[in-house]
């Protein structure tokens, strides 16, 4: 019964006005209840990711890294085309792209802290 009550309250809250910055005491109370409910699905989501094994992780890391290098290459190549500095722009920006790719990967595994520790659990998310 209690869970039904909570669900109805949840729906009521979400159908109402956009829940941004409203200082209503009742809404705050509901939000706390809602946060309690949120704990369970979060755990479930983590398990899904773990069950995938290494494949998902590998593809994620690979695309993060390659994306950095490709973007570096494209920027460098474009600079070369525009300013006629062949091949220096490409060389420099490939190296920078390599660095950016490495940064992406390190950030994805959580070895480098997120830029914005203010946002609570986002760091936690990264480590998955």
């Amino acid at each position: 019964m209690t869970s039904d009550d909570k669900r109805r309250e949840t729906e009521g809250l979400n159908e109402g006005k956009p829940p941004i910055g409203s200082g209503d005491a009742r809404l705050d109370k509901l939000r706390e209840k809602l946060d309690d409910l949120k704990q369970t699905p979060e755990v479930g989501a983590g398990q899904t990711q773990g069950g995938m094994g290494g494949i998902g992780q590998a593809v994620k890391m690979g695309s993060e890294f390659v994306a950095g290098v490709i973007v570096g290459f494209v920027i460098g190549y474009t600079i070369d085309q525009v300013f006629g500095t062949k091949p220096w722009g490409m060389i420099v920006f490939l190296l920078l792209g390599f660095a950016a790719g490495t940064l992406n990967v390190l950030r994805a595994v959580g070895a480098v802290t997120e830029r914005f520790p203010s946002s609570g659990q986002s760091e936690d998310k990264d480590k998955r």
Binding site: S63, A67, A99, A100
Partner: peptide, 16 residues
């Protein structure tokens, strides 16, 4: 490096 990292996001997001 941060700018390149930012620009690589849509790429890695779509490629993945």
């Amino acid at each position: 490096i941060e700018v390149i990292s930012f620009l690589s996001r849509p790429l890695s997001l779509s490629v993945r």
